[in-house]
Amino acid sequence: MPRKSLENLTESMFYLLMVFCRGPACGTDAAAMVKEKTRGRCRIGPATLYTILAKFEQEKYIKEIAVEGRKRTYQITEKGLAAYREELARLRQCVADAEGEPAERSGRDGN
């Protein structure tokens, strides 16, 4: 069954919340910070960025705090922070679960 929207954050959503935790930012700056943070591994295209920002605003994860010309600055909210922390805890649990597995096990033929 397909998951409900924002039940889990996608990688792009998670990283965007992460950079908003640093402080207020506009959309394009936030996308650039994500690229820099992940050393180019996670890139956020403009359509993806604006869909996420609209969804975050709708879910009240971020709020618009300033508009300068065509540039809008957003700030993370308590709800957004909670969502980020929850996702972080979930990912930590995933990593912990993976680390609990024997290191070099191939997973094939029950070996």
Binding site: S12, I44, T48, T51, I52
Partner: peptide, 8 residues
């Protein structure tokens, strides 16, 4: 333009 299929 779209980098995340789930977001698209």
């Amino acid at each position: 333009l779209n980098t995340d299929p789930a977001v698209q």
